[in-house]
């Protein structure tokens, strides 16, 4: 069989396959398996088939073993999708103009802008999230500023709510949106905008009918890069949401930590991965449409 003939390419790939297979792919399969098992009394799993973990997401079992609909976890799912979706949308709205501005600078200034956008991208997420606590707290900078100038009498509750979490997500992932859009704008043939102008298209018409469609691959790539970490985000909701704005990441972490319900955490992970894959498929389809256009 031709497949069995080990070409050098396969030999070179061997270390990667071994490490990836054992320490990445197998753990993922393990999680899928755990999601169909029963919870052990002190964490871990009992090796018997059970759908309890998935049922628990929508229903609550009372003492008689009857199932009652309970929206508590569903709310966590919906909140995660909503926050990640809003975050992605805001990232596009803020990221596209920024990337556009960058791409229309002279080359040496462009490099400076790229560096300035890249630095936060590579600085510690925990610290960047923590910094917002300093800004938003009751005794934080914004409140101190407003109190000092007498604009407000009581500190505004800026921290520990959905607003703070959304802001934290936007802040965390904005560079993930700017950079891919920039790279597709930079590769774009700008003579096309001149052609549009020659054909009497105004700047807005050129923007919406030429530039944005051409930058679509970047916008889609950026959306994937923002949406995936945002929907599984742990730190923003943990530190800025103060436990009241639980997202999927927190729910999953909790099941493997304090709550010790591994199958439930595994089931939530499987659903999270399914949401991510669904999102990716929608994006890929969109990308195909875009390619068809050009």
């Amino acid at each position: 069989m031709r497949f069995l003939k080990l070409s050098p390419a396969y030999l070179l790939l061997l270390p990667f396959f071994i490490i990836m297979g054992v320490f990445f792919v197998m753990p993922l399969f393990l999680i899928v398996a755990y999601s169909f098992m029963a919870a052990g009394p002190y964490g871990g799993v009992v090796h018997q088939f059970s759908l309890d973990a998935y049922l628990q997401i929508l229903f609550e079992k009372d003492f008689d073993g009857n199932l009652h609909f309970s929206p508590a976890y569903l709310e966590v799912f919906l909140r995660s999708v909503k926050l990640a979706g809003v975050c992605t949308l805001l990232c596009v709205l803020a990221g596209f103009p920024t990337a556009y501005h960058m791409a229309t600078r002279p080359p040496e200034k462009r490099n400076l802008w790229i560096m300035l956008v890249t630095i936060p991208f590579w600085t510690n997420l925990l610290i960047r999230t923590y910094a917002w606590m300093l800004v938003l707290r009751n005794e934080g900078l914004v409140n101190n500023f407003l109190l000092y100038f007498g604009i407000i009498k009581e500190p505004l509750p800026l921290l520990y709510n959905g607003f703070a979490v959304g802001l934290g997500l936007l802040y965390s992932y904005l560079p993930f949106m700017i950079l891919p859009i920039y790279s597709s704008l930079e590769r774009m043939d700008w003579r096309l905008t001149e052609a549009a102008a020659d054909l009497y298209a105004g700047r807005w018409q050129t923007l919406f009918r030429v530039t944005i469609p051409l930058a679509m691959p970047g916008i889609i790539a950026g959306s994937v890069l923002v949406f995936i970490p945002a929907i599984g985000s742990f730190l923003a909701s943990d530190l800025l949401g103060g436990g009241k704005q639980m997202m999927l990441g927190n729910l999953i972490q909790l099941q493997f930590g304090f709550s010790r319900n591994w199958p439930f955490g595994a089931a939530a992970s499987v659903i999270l991965m399914a949401i991510v894959m669904l999102g990716m498929m929608l994006m890929a389809r969109k990308a195909k449409d875009v390619k068809g256009l050009v």
Partner: peptide, 10 residues
């Protein structure tokens, strides 16, 4: 492409 928290628990 896999959320970090899933990699963590896996």
């Amino acid at each position: 492409l896999i959320p970090e928290v899933v990699i963590a628990i896996a």
